[in-house]
């Protein structure tokens, strides 16, 4: 038993390095996708202190809208533009109808409001697009498909899906762009000001309403990118919503307010989950992927309650 837990997995890693590398790659890709969802959470949390539970369903919704437009004969790129517009309208609507009347409420109320939004979007999405999974229009959008195999050593073989590479590249581009946006542009600085202190930001002439609409729109765009990438790997379906909960442990690892934290947290969870599942999962009957991420986060939290990159929690009486 002890041998199975502590020695055998490492022996396997050493004996089959190609398999180990493949697992690492899988973990890397999963981590990137978790990080993308977490990024949407972080954006909104940074600017409004709202923990946006609806991010997962926004991913599904964006993906479905894109595919839905294309199914009705709209060319792929045109559909993309239209989806961006839809996400913009959604962002404005959420700000106007949900967030604005709830200013200054305790965070649990805001959290519940986003869960209510989730319910609404689930119903609305199924009402408009139907409940069955849909195929993402990968080729039409000009995204690479297929895979490349690398040979390692004598008989080793790693298979890299092109779409995964594209996902990684897009994630890197998005994080860089968001980093520049937050640090160098006027709106980005306004966003950070709002995150620091709502009232102070208002008093220097920053419009809260406008900023929140922008943030929700940015989160919508991140959701769209995530939806495309995730949809390309599997199908676009409402099952993604549950997968999106995985972003929560990612956030905990990275800290709720840190964009690099979301990426690092995503990668830790991605690697940990795949390696745990493939090398240790068999011992307890498999399927541990569904909770391993949470347990990793839980153990981590016991030692560092504010996350890897989170700001230090100071308590005052």
């Amino acid at each position: 038993m002890l041998y199975d837990i502590f020695i055998d997995p490492f022996v396997q890693m050493y004996d089959m390095p190609d398999f180990f590398l493949q697992v690492l790659w899988e973990g890397f890709v999963a981590g990137i996708l978790y990080a993308l969802i977490a990024l949407g959470f972080v954006l909104i949390f940074k600017a409004s202190g709202v923990f946006n539970f609806a991010q997962g369903i926004m991913v599904v919704f964006a993906g479905l809208t894109l595919v839905g437009f294309h199914e009705n004969g709209v060319p792929a790129y045109m559909a993309l533009v239209l989806t961006v517009i839809v996400m913009g309208i959604l962002a404005y609507g959420v700000e106007r109808i949900v967030m604005r009347p709830l200013v200054n409420q305790p965070e649990i109320i805001l959290l519940m409001a986003t869960i209510g939004l989730t319910y609404f979007l689930v119903g609305f999405g199924e009402f408009v697009f139907g409940g069955e999974p849909k195929q993402m229009i990968t080729e039409e959008l000009g995204l690479p498909t297929g895979s490349t195999a690398f040979e390692i050593g004598e008989r080793g073989l790693i298979i890299l899906q092109h779409i995964d590479i594209a996902a990684a590249v897009i994630a890197v581009i998005m994080v860089t762009a968001l980093g520049i946006f937050f640090n160098k542009t006027r709106i980005g600085r306004a966003l950070r000001a709002v995150a620091d202190d709502h009232q102070a930001a208002l008093s220097v002439g920053i419009s809260l309403n406008q900023i929140w609409a922008i943030v929700w729109f940015a989160a919508g765009l991140v959701a769209l990118a995530t939806g495309i990438m995730w949809g390309a790997r599997s199908d676009v379906s409402f099952a993604l919503e549950i997968v999106a909960f995985k972003a929560l442990p990612v956030l905990i690892l990275g800290g709720f307010t840190s964009i690099p934290g979301a990426i690092v947290g995503g990668l830790i969870i991605g690697f940990g989950e795949k390696i745990g599942e493939l090398y240790w999962g068999g011992l307890v009957g498999g399927g541990i992927e569904s909770w391993l991420a949470y347990i990793i986060a839980l153990v981590f939290l016991l030692f560092r309650p504010q996350g890897l990159f989170g700001e230090r929690i100071i308590e005052r009486i």
């Binding site: 109320i109 409001a113 319910y119 609404f120 689930v122 009402f127």
Partner: peptide, 20 residues
């Protein structure tokens, strides 16, 4: 069923706004 989801979601938001 879809309408139920939408109505429940909308009512939750409505009640949170009106009486948190």
């Amino acid at each position: 069923e879809h309408a139920t989801f939408m109505i429940v979601g909308a009512l939750i938001i409505f009640f949170l706004i009106v009486e948190p």
